[in-house]
Nucleic acid binder design. Structure first.
Length: 322
DNA sequence: TATACATGGATAA
DNA sequence: TATCCCTGTATAT
């Protein structure tokens, strides 16, 4: 599920599983051979997620010629990855990797739910490996499918398939990418600047709020599921123009996004229903993919329509135009 | 074997 | 608004 929460999970997974290590970087598929060559043998020093964008910072250490200090911005090279609609990272490795799993498009999930690299394996197989877990033989698996990038570290491998964007950037270029993005509810916003910017952007335009929420310059990291669910919970019709919406309503929506998406980072799943509203335990969403079925709150049939060339779902009774 | 589809986005028109 | 790109899976034929 490559909405923002998945990308933040990926950043954490790379930090836990690869940071500080010198990585072998290749492009089994070949389409990223040049970029891989730029990073091959460098140390993964930083990981960053902003919205749906993942940045992995590499530095070629051991510059015995007295180069600039480690961590100097001009020396870093960033692997910039955007998964798009069907990109995914698949991980495998030794016992320290907690077994294979994947984060990205749901069809390539290996486990039923995503797991961070640091979490224990679900089966009982890992219990036996205690001392010197890293001494266990570990075979790098053959790439499966169209692997654009493969990163191999001491304990595991990460394969990237199907990204919409995969490129090497210098720090200035990374800055430019981030500069085009709006606030990310998953990043710290102690002074409330992110919340205020989102509220102002939505209220400053007649653009339907359902379109604005998908605009990564307004709000970074929200995708089609969070969009539909945030609007339901805020009781806002997706086509309602942004400029008429009370600031208080939008501030509450921002805080709701912070809460729901942080929960998504923690669990690897998008769950937006309050337990009391679930008819069955599997009711994770109020309206997304529920067209034609009764609203969990009022029983009215959930509607579906096109909005800016994406499917949008809403309850015509709970979500009003005014 | 073909086609449709997916939690996204850039670019052309 | 339309078209294209990225890939794997489910369903239809």
């Amino acid at each position: 599920m490559p909405e923002g929460h998945s990308i933040h999970r990926l950043a954490a997974a790379f930090r836990d599983g690869f940071a500080g290590q010198r990585l072998a970087v290749t492009s089994p598929q070949g389409r990223f051979a040049d970029g891989a060559a730029l990073l091959d043998g460098a140390v993964l020093s930083r990981t960053q997620a902003w919205g749906k964008h993942l940045f992995l910072g590499f530095e070629h250490g051991g510059d015995e010629h007295g180069g600039t200090a480690p961590g100097a911005a001009q020396d870093i090279r960033w692997l910039h990855v955007h998964l798009g609609l069907y990109g995914a990272w698949t991980f495998a490795g030794d016992s320290e990797f907690a077994g294979p799993h994947a984060i990205g498009a749901p069809r390539v999930r290996i486990a039923e739910e995503e797991r961070a690299l640091s979490e224990p394996a679900p089966s009982g197989t890992s219990g036996a490996i205690l001392e010197g877990g890293a001494d266990r033989e570990w075979q790098v698996p053959e790439p499966r499918g169209q692997v654009r990038v493969r990163l191999v570290g001491e304990h595991g491998v990460a394969d990237l398939t199907g990204p919409t964007r995969c490129e090497v950037l210098d720090d200035q270029a990374r800055h430019a990418v981030v500069g085009r993005l709006g606030p990310d509810p998953l990043l710290p916003d102690a002074d409330g600047a992110g919340e205020a910017a989102m509220v102002a952007a939505i209220r400053g335009s007649r653009t339907p709020v359902g379109v604005a929420l998908m605009d990564q310059a307004v709000l970074a990291g929200v995708g089609n599921i969070y969009r539909a669910e945030l609007l339901f919970r805020a009781r806002l019709h997706p086509r309602r123009p942004g400029e008429g919406i009370a600031a208080r309503t939008l501030r509450a929506l921002w805080r709701d996004a912070v809460r729901l998406m942080a929960d998504g980072v923690a669990t690897g799943r998008i769950v937006t229903t309050d337990p009391a509203d679930r008819e069955v335990a599997e009711d994770s969403w109020y309206v997304y993919h529920r067209d034609g079925r009764p609203c969990l709150r009022c029983g009215t049939r959930v509607q579906v329509g096109d909005l800016a060339s994406r499917r949008v779902y809403w309850c015509p009774r709970c979500q009003r135009m005014r």
